[in-house]
Design a protein around this nucleic acid. Structure first.
Lengths: 228, 228
DNA sequence: ATATACCATTTATCATATAATTGCCCAGTC
DNA sequence: GACTGGGCAATTATATGATAAATGGTATAT
């Protein structure tokens, strides 16, 4: 649970907004009303409102009150916002959009990793490989192992914007599991695939690494689209 | 300028943090000190601190004070954070990273646009084409016209996560102009290129649209890397 | 009909008091 | 001597009340 009142309120309101309880464009209850509804002081309320404004969900102005911003203003790559979205309106459509982003990001990340990975990062990817192998034998969680593998590739890309998407990829994979009920098809469980990716990265063969990831995600997207 | 005190302070502190005035991992001045330094009340200070925490730049806890988070926690896709980064430490390295993200995103966005664009969105892309043509004749700003074209493609992708990156692409292109001093090479000024992209999207030829954008960005990345 | 001045509402800011959290030290105990 | 618990101190967290500023709307004057 969130520690302090402000964060608790931020989460409650954030979830409610994302869920659609306060429709876009409409005015939320005024400061005073929110205080009463949630039995907190104005300080806590105002701080929560500020945090939500910082994430682009709302904006508040004198006289006009607190209004819900259009979705285009929301910071969708903020992991809290992402969490609220996943919690309140998971859907196959959302999974599709997630996977499309992975489709764009991961092949390029693998390419960059092949070109830039440090020896240390390489060994981290190799370790991730072992985890996947162990997961096959039931010694580790398959999903966690796969996510770890992808995260290591993102880290090895050496690009801070890719690195920041680790949480995003994490969320995307955890959603996918809800719908596919197995890792297979979304992220090939066959460890030989991951070995190929690792080898390409190790050999500095960016094009191969990129293509490998691209192909497997291509299948994943096709699978999801077939269900829509 | 930012309207209210809280936002002003948020910007000042945000910029300072990104700039490195408060090194990562260190403790920032306490609430009380910040109040005095910037001559504002505790409410304003606390709200600014909350906004920066919401963006992942800092975290504050009793006794421990306000500490600067590692960069991996920053919400780099937040347009304000992006703005602060661009303002304080623009570099060719940063441009490279920006362009790599574009390299990942834009070809896929074009592909999706080809597959999903509505008639209205198609006509918006067509309009953007006219703007580029007019820009060639000096009737419109070239950079703005190019950014507009890319934004329309992102919008037509129908994927909210791509759509959200319009600001990112905007920032990336505006940085690139600082270094290349001309749009050429970063985003081909030849309008015939853009016509090809538009036609591919209009014809629903995702693969072609994707390849076209990929090729031109491939050149852009190569150009930047040659300067590093 | 238009522009200006005023008014009411809501957030913004300031100020102060009290509570809660937590790192740290110190004493006590085994 | 090392570990455990209590208590202290520093800092943020929360509550509350008062005042300022912003702004949409209204009324008024021309």
């Amino acid at each position: 649970m969130s520690k302090n009142l402000t964060q608790q309120l931020t989460h409650k309101l954030g979830e409610a907004i994302v869920k659609g309880d306060y429709p876009i464009g409409t005015r939320m209850p005024s400061e005073a009303v929110l205080c009463e509804q949630f039995s907190v002081s104005r300080s806590a309320t105002r701080e929560a409102v500020k945090m939500l404004s910082a994430k682009g969900l709302i904006s508040s102005r004198p006289k006009q009150g607190i209004t819900v911003n259009p979705e285009s203003n929301w910071n969708l790559y903020d992991s809290e916002v992402l969490e609220w979205i996943l919690k309140s309106k998971p859907s196959l459509q959302l999974l599709k959009e997630f996977t499309q982003v992975r489709f764009a990001i991961e092949p390029m990340a693998a390419k960059l990793a092949a070109e830039n990975a440090t020896p240390k990062q390489l060994s981290q990817i190799e370790e991730a490989l072992y985890r996947i192998a162990e997961a096959q034998e039931g010694l580790d969680d398959q999903l966690d192992a796969h996510i770890n593998f992808l995260n290591m590739i993102l880290l090895a890309s050496g690009n801070r914007f890719f690195i920041q998407l680790t949480q995003f990829v994490d969320a995307a994979l955890r959603v996918s599991i809800r719908y596919t009920n197995q890792v297979k098809g979304i992220s090939n469980t066959d460890v030989t695939f991951h070995v190929k990716v690792y080898n390409a990265i190790k050999d500095g063969d960016g094009a191969s690494a990129q293509t490998l990831i691209y192909e497997v995600l291509s299948d994943a997207v096709a699978l999801i689209e077939s269900r829509l």
